[in-house]
Write a protein that binds this DNA or RNA. Sequence first.
DNA 1: CGCTGAGTTGAAACATGTCAACCGGTGTGG
DNA 2: CCACACCGGTTGACATGTTTCAACTCAGCG
Lengths: 253, 253
Amino acid sequence: MSRRRGRRQEPQDTTPASVAEGAAISTEQHRLIARYHSGDREIEAGRDLFSIGWTGKSIFNLLHGWVAVYTLLEDGRRQIVQFALPGAILGVLPSRRGSSTIGAQALTDVTVSVIPASVLATHARTEPEICLRLVQSLARDCNLAFDHLTSIGRRSARERVAHLLLELFTRYRAQWPGNRIEEMTLPLTQEQIGDATGLTFVHVNRVLSAMRKEGIVQFHYRRLRILDPDRLIEVAGVDPETALGWLERRPWT
Amino acid sequence: MSRRRGRRQEPQDTTPASVAEGAAISTEQHRLIARYHSGDREIEAGRDLFSIGWTGKSIFNLLHGWVAVYTLLEDGRRQIVQFALPGAILGVLPSRRGSSTIGAQALTDVTVSVIPASVLATHARTEPEICLRLVQSLARDCNLAFDHLTSIGRRSARERVAHLLLELFTRYRAQWPGNRIEEMTLPLTQEQIGDATGLTFVHVNRVLSAMRKEGIVQFHYRRLRILDPDRLIEVAGVDPETALGWLERRPWT
DNA sequence: CGCTGAGTTGAAACATGTCAACCGGTGTGG
DNA sequence: CCACACCGGTTGACATGTTTCAACTCAGCG
């Protein structure tokens, strides 16, 4: 039942996500809780920002890079439940007591701003902005999770993969406004796409091959090229209106 | 690809979820934003609290009954993304502008407290409690959504159904503390279980039949009886520790 | 009494998983 | 500098879980 491929977990060489491709949103624009951070931290690609069982009491504001949030079953099956982009807030969920049931893996080299939970607790009442920001971030995460749920639950493999690529592309492009090139560095392996879509990496490969042959998208070694946006939208099964809605999204998240 | 069964949507006879089975948490305990509600509203079983496309500007505090939050694909495929129990907060997500991409259907007769979004907007700054409460509710929803994601993405049909039953049972029982009977009214059809687990109602039926024959659970016409809790936990593939964690959850949500 | 919603069951079709072999690139250590 | 290991990707043959289609039951209700 789709165990993971026998590979080491630790290192991973990944070219940084940011190539000069347009006018990017600056790192500082992502730092939306500037005042209280207790310092920035850098994590190299492949490492965990925090792992399952983590008992730390901090939350993280992702400033740069990509992060995959995942869960694990006892026998090694893995599910990626969220892809976090700059601006995202991570680590809120592991509710107070107890340890985190989710892990967060850096897909690229990553820099986060660390905010002690204590700060949050003491200032939440006096500084409503923080709280509102949290609500916004969580609502967005929830919405995305719901999208993924319907994707995994009710779409075919082909639709799921198309949907994911489309989502990540539009979210990414929202960070590079004005850039119209249908191409990007997508710092994922096919196995990770499988972990996010509930498929096997073998099957992801087949789906991607098919879509490449049909001239819809091309995804090779972390380079994603969208050859036929309209057909991709069609295969993903989102109405173009929604797709446009995605493009309007705020830069953060 | 698993369209819905050709049935009318509207009415639905459902016995109310609350039977006298122990010391329930009172309705007032669920009303956590008491001050600002603009009145309560009752929705009968089967009706939508709000539907996809809804543009209203209210949020709802569920006081009594069960609600299923769902999404729809163009061709009628449906995915239930959340089950809301008393105490839950609904309708936060449909972000300001634009219409809701999710719907909420009453599974039983339901009463909600309606809170105009405007109230929220004006008081969020002055009354941090509201905001904190929202964060808590959203974080919980997000966590549950992540659980469901890994269930649908990586578990077998059998595991998924077991997992869902276990989750709903523990969440329900948290509302009736002190009650130790492994039995409850679960106001769902097998089709709705399918919509939540990403399966066909036919297959849900087969799985349930099998588990009944094996003496694990019994689910017939909205009556759920857990015959062998340990085996259910085992089949669901959660470690007992986590299962206990569920039981510790706050009454609301 | 017929209708409808929900559940049940069997047979066959199909999507996806499993297993296994192989390729090319890259880093590493002898 | 070569040999080797390993990662990520690719492909084929086959196994299997789940869906699809269809028929039938049962209960409630007008």
